[in-house]
Simulated scan of single mutants.
Amino acid sequence: MGISLRNIVKSYKKVKAVEDISFEVKPGELFGLIGPDGAGKTTIFRILTTLLIPDNGSATVAGYDIIEDYKAIRKSVGYMPGRFSLYQDLSVEENLNFFATIFGTTIEENYELIEDIYVQIEPFKNRRAGKLSGGMKQKLALSCALIHKPKVLFLDEPTTGVDPVSRKEFWEMLKRLQKKGITILVSTPYMDEAALCDRIALIQDGGILEIDTPENIVKKFPKTIYNVGANNMYKLIQSLQQYEHVYSVFPFGEFVHYTDKRESFKIEDLKSYLKKEGLTQISIEATQPNIEDAFMELAK
Score class of each variant (00 low, 15 high):
5 L>Y: 00
7 N>H: 15
11 S>N: 15
17 A>R: 00
19 E>K: 10
20 D>Q: 03
24 E>K: 06
29 E>V: 08
32 G>M: 10
33 L>W: 02
33 L>M: 13
38 G>W: 01
39 A>G: 00
41 K>I: 01
41 K>S: 08
47 I>H: 07
47 I>E: 06
48 L>I: 02
56 N>C: 11
58 S>I: 05
58 S>V: 05
60 T>G: 04
62 A>N: 13
64 Y>H: 14
69 D>W: 12
72 A>G: 03
72 A>P: 00
78 G>L: 12
79 Y>N: 06
82 G>K: 08
83 R>P: 06
84 F>R: 12
86 L>S: 07
87 Y>C: 05
88 Q>T: 11
91 S>F: 09
93 E>Y: 09
94 E>L: 04
94 E>N: 03
110 N>C: 07
115 E>F: 04
117 I>Q: 09
118 Y>C: 07
121 I>Y: 05
130 G>H: 09
133 S>G: 02
133 S>F: 12
134 G>D: 08
136 M>N: 02
138 Q>V: 02
140 L>E: 13
144 C>L: 12
148 H>I: 09
149 K>F: 08
152 V>T: 09
152 V>Y: 01
155 L>M: 11
158 P>Y: 02
159 T>W: 06
161 G>F: 12
164 P>Y: 06
166 S>H: 05
166 S>D: 06
166 S>P: 06
167 R>C: 03
176 R>D: 13
180 K>H: 04
186 V>I: 15
188 T>G: 11
189 P>V: 02
192 D>C: 09
193 E>P: 11
193 E>Q: 05
193 E>A: 02
198 D>R: 00
199 R>H: 14
203 I>F: 03
204 Q>K: 15
214 P>M: 05
215 E>I: 04
219 K>W: 04
221 F>V: 01
223 K>S: 01
223 K>D: 04
225 I>S: 08
225 I>H: 09
227 N>Q: 13
229 G>M: 12
231 N>D: 15
231 N>W: 00
231 N>C: 09
240 L>E: 08
241 Q>A: 12
241 Q>R: 15
242 Q>A: 15
244 E>T: 09
246 V>S: 10
246 V>G: 01
247 Y>T: 05
255 F>P: 00
255 F>Y: 14
255 F>V: 15
258 Y>L: 02
258 Y>A: 00
263 E>M: 14
267 I>P: 02
268 E>K: 14
271 K>T: 13
273 Y>W: 03
278 G>L: 03
280 T>N: 12
286 A>S: 13
291 I>Y: 00
293 D>L: 10
293 D>C: 02
294 A>H: 12
295 F>V: 04
300 K>Q: 14
300 K>V: 09
